[in-house]
Design a protein around this nucleic acid. Structure first.
Lengths: 186, 186
DNA sequence: CTCAAGTGAGACAGTTATGTCTCATGAATT
DNA sequence: AATTCATGAGACATAACTGTCTCACTTGAG
């Protein structure tokens, strides 16, 4: 059923996040099914990677939707986005680690769409004066995802409490991009 | 000679950063040598990965040395560290992407040593009041490396100018961790 | 109870990467 | 010029993974 596939994809993402070169058998075991069943679901490793990438981008896109980036000030919007992103950090980490997906038109386009939405809200904040303008909007967008992925790894390895992750990511990101009274550096 | 090995390791890191599952032949070609020669230098994939990890951590450790974290205020020290880190972003990215190295005692210990030095300077800044105390020092340390790795990827893919990378990473990081006058959020 | 559907286990061949080897070439040294 | 030495090319067997298949077992519906 669809629920099973979700579970399989999630566990596969989690496992591939830790072991990018895992075999199909290893992935199947991690998901609690046999290699034969995994193969029936996804005919081959490429199909699995593609399904995983698509699912991951669906999740990321849904998270960005849920953050309602158009509402309120930009910093609060980014904070909401981080809150939505952290629960799906495995998928985000998979997207960053899986290079079999680069140059896939569908994946690239979906990622581009997500990125442009984030970049847009950053630009909005820069234009209304709430975010600093000396950092490229695209960099800020990428930094948000980088921090989320990094925090996800820290949580996975036990160096960061899961419940703290959204806060520390958002605080660091927002603090770093918000336009402050003393932007001067020595 | 030693110079050749450095070149090979650097190119291998760069290539593995882009294609973590690259074959030995692929790596050898990327480094401009034949598979046989690569095999003479490093007898097997594991040996290569270990040498690469050791070299990467040497570089990171040297970068942290060069940043003289004990001198000056903590924010400036972190800025110097980012400046030293960005030129070796390939190695850093390899360390983050290569999971064959986890649970290797030597690598883990070296990484731990580096991390503790960074964490120490963060703590120093927190104690003298220059850095915010509502974020764990270890998280700030990890965030620095995450941002550096993310910026390295952006540079590699052409989304960020190489010469801008140190500045944008440092600005975001320092701005995010520095204790500001208005830490309150709506 | 019967049967259909899905699953796990395992066999099997094909493919790919690996590790080791030999040999010829070319460059550097003497 | 002669020779040493590292390299590149390629052959070769081995190992690992893959994709496909069959078969027995469980489960759940009718």
């Amino acid at each position: 059923m669809s629920t099973d596939r979700e579970h399989v994809l999630r566990e596969a993402a989690r496992h591939l996040n830790r072991r990018p070169a895992a075999s199909m058998d290893e992935i199947a075991r991690a998901a609690g099914i046999s290699r034969a069943t995994l193969h029936r679901m996804y005919p081959g490793r490429d199909a699995l990677a593609l399904a995983l990438g698509s699912r991951a981008l669906e999740q990321v896109s849904a998270a960005v939707d849920a953050a309602r980036l158009d509402e309120g000030d930009a910093a609060a919007a980014l904070r909401r986005m981080v809150d939505e992103l952290m629960p799906i950090a495995e998928f985000l980490g998979f997207l960053y680690g899986e290079n079999a997906l680069v140059d896939n038109p569908e994946i690239d386009a979906a990622w581009e769409a997500v990125d442009s939405r984030v970049t847009a809200v950053v630009r909005r904040g820069q234009q209304d004066g709430s975010l600093r303008i000396d950092l490229p909007a695209q960099w800020i967008s990428e930094a948000a995802f980088s921090l989320a992925v990094g925090a996800g790894w820290s949580v996975r390895d036990g160096r960061l409490a899961r419940r703290d992750a959204p806060r520390v990511v958002a605080e660091l990101l927002i603090g770093g991009v918000r336009r402050g009274p003393d932007p001067a550096v020595s």
